[in-house]
Design a protein around this nucleic acid. Structure first.
Lengths: 210, 210, 210, 210
DNA sequence: CATGAATGAGCATTCATTCAT
DNA sequence: CATGAATGAATGCTCATTCAT
């Protein structure tokens, strides 16, 4: 059961350094912003010569691409991982799932605020292409959520006339608002708890007096 | 009842030019982005010398400040203008109001996509201060919406246990998601219509099967 | 009889500086070579900021273009100026003219060795386009000389079966060889004198024993 | 009569690789130019690591030196090989020899345009030393040609008052002009034929009407 | 007060060379 | 001995800002 391991020591070092550069770029870009970050900053953070950077990435834009792609994949994974719609059959179960998801998102957001900063705040101001990529990511989130809702409709615990697509996008908006609130006040570790609860009630029950 | 009129012709010209510069900066910043815009671009758009710019604004950051402030004020005004909570007394009236508001927002978004771009996409990547300003703006939106909801609770057509604050923020998130969708696909002039309807139903009735 | 003189003081300064930069670039390029010359070198020679350079020329290649064009025009002018073929009717007159031309070239070469360096040594190693430009210049020289010879044939003091075109190019080669000799040993101020004489005899009489 | 044969297999490989590197450098330098050629280009052409280059040559300048020296030697050999003055005794023989030489040069030029490019176009723009080497090469060509002419004078079929030295340099100029014409238009395979004829007549008979 | 010429800090990128493996 | 990873000096170019006219 030995895997393919043609990774020489040099090879591993190389991959490690590449990962380190990506990591350093991620930190710098999310902390100071893409435009405020010089390649020299990334190199200095790692204690490497800045020429070394160009042995691993074509140019500044190239590494941003990789950083964003990596981050986007993690975000998509987060969204997709929670998408186990068939696990729930009743409204009660569904509500629990929502709370679990909210909890999960909340934890992720607290653990990785830099990712959120990068995608929500920085990536939208590089160029048209990158901005569209962010839009596409958000759109994907909406579609995943919509599938999730469609499942609820199919199982009969969500309104049969629910506009799953648009509602999915709306829910993504709700999540985004939570992220923005966290980013606005990163030290307030409780803000998302009550927000999550309110959101779960909002989307399940609405606001109207019954 | 003549107001103070120490506005000489020169004075008026001066104010006019200042406004023109602001306008030009707004267009450039929202079109090409803050970092991609040179002071010379703004000046050239107006056909003035770029040295003139510095007679009206301290520096590039300064005019961004003004541009953002102006834009923020218009957005706040949009939010506040719709905030006539006492106008509605019943759920039906309230729902109509919601639709009206959605309509209003939609129209505004279609009419002023540059404003949205500027605030949502660009302003968040200048520096920490400006980013906080955007957060504050969004937060203000949430609070205004919350007051609006509180009014609903007071009038008894919204749940008495509604977490107005958090729900207000959630609604702002829903609006933001709509803006993002519009910015992602500016030519699709109908996307917001069905989105508005779905959102109104979501927030009033929730998703659960009754 | 007043000429157009809308040249303000600023305008004149501007033109003067532009000319100065051209001159400085010419000196640096011909002295140290194009690739060895940094824009900063040109600026420093004039005591101006190197950013100023870019107010007058698009980029390094751009100014090379202008420098080469200017130089080429002077060289062409030198060739063309001497081309007064109809001035001579007999072989004796023609020989005198040749000597005069040789003298002129010689003086020019001594006075402007940098021009020769630039065109013959430097310009041929920038890129394909610039190299072709040098070839075109040499070719033009050959053609001008050929016309000059054709005139001699027409007036009957040169061989009627003279291949004027090819011979014209050959004469340009003879001139170029003289330039190379001068550039090889710029301090030897007499080398061209005897060379000129030998060349005149060569082209008029050939080498064969009569 | 055993030669020195300490050439082990490794030794031969070593010498072969050295020759390959020289050859590769020659091609790159003459194709793209010295400044446009990176050491990595040379190494890549051979499929060797670019660190290996430095085991065989001190630095970039060093290999240029060797490349130029090799090329210069071949050019000198070309000049010298044709210099068999005692082979001709009469003007007719001499003229035939001239034509043969022209033919030889022409063939060489068509076969080795890269050599000409390198020496005439590239080598003159490296630094003062290399430029002087090119001048020295041209000068050697002139001297060889002069000896050749001197022989003609001695044998009595060239003018007894012929300035052999200067005329020798002039002839080299004529040859150089032919090379330039070829380099300017490498596809025109006939340009040198008529040029050669015209040149032979020029130097033997001159241009004057007899 | 308007102008635009001048400035230089700042940055992305290249590449010859070194050296540990 | 071959390799290629690492390095940093070098440089072209941009643009916000200042200031003399």
């Amino acid at each position: 059961m030995t895997e393919d391991k043609p990774l020489s020591r040099a090879e591993r070092n190389r991959l490690q350094l590449r990962a380190d550069i990506l990591q350093a770029a991620f930190i710098e870009f999310s902390d100071r912003g893409y435009h405020q970050t010089a390649i020299a900053d990334i190199a200095q953070r790692l204690g490497i010569g800045h020429g070394t950077f160009y042995r691993y990435f074509d140019n500044k834009r190239d590494i941003l691409e990789h950083v964003i792609n990596d981050t986007a994949m993690q975000l998509i994974a987060l969204l997709a991982a929670e998408n186990a719609p068939n696990a729930v059959q009743t409204l009660a179960e569904y509500r629990e799932q929502c709370q679990r998801i909210a909890q999960r998102f909340s934890e992720f957001a607290y653990a990785n605020p830099k990712m959120l900063r990068l995608v929500l705040l920085e990536a939208t101001s590089i160029d048209a292409d990158m901005t569209q990529r962010v839009f596409a990511l958000i759109n994907t989130g909406g579609q995943l959520t919509a599938e999730y809702l469609a499942n609820g409709v199919k199982h009969g615990f969500l309104r049969s006339d629910l506009d799953t697509t648009n509602t999915g996008h709306a829910i993504v908006g709700i999540i985004m608002a939570g992220m923005f609130r966290l980013l606005a006040d990163p030290d307030n570790t409780s803000v998302l708890t009550s927000y999550g609860e309110a959101c779960v009630r909002l989307i399940t029950e609405g606001m109207a007096k019954t």
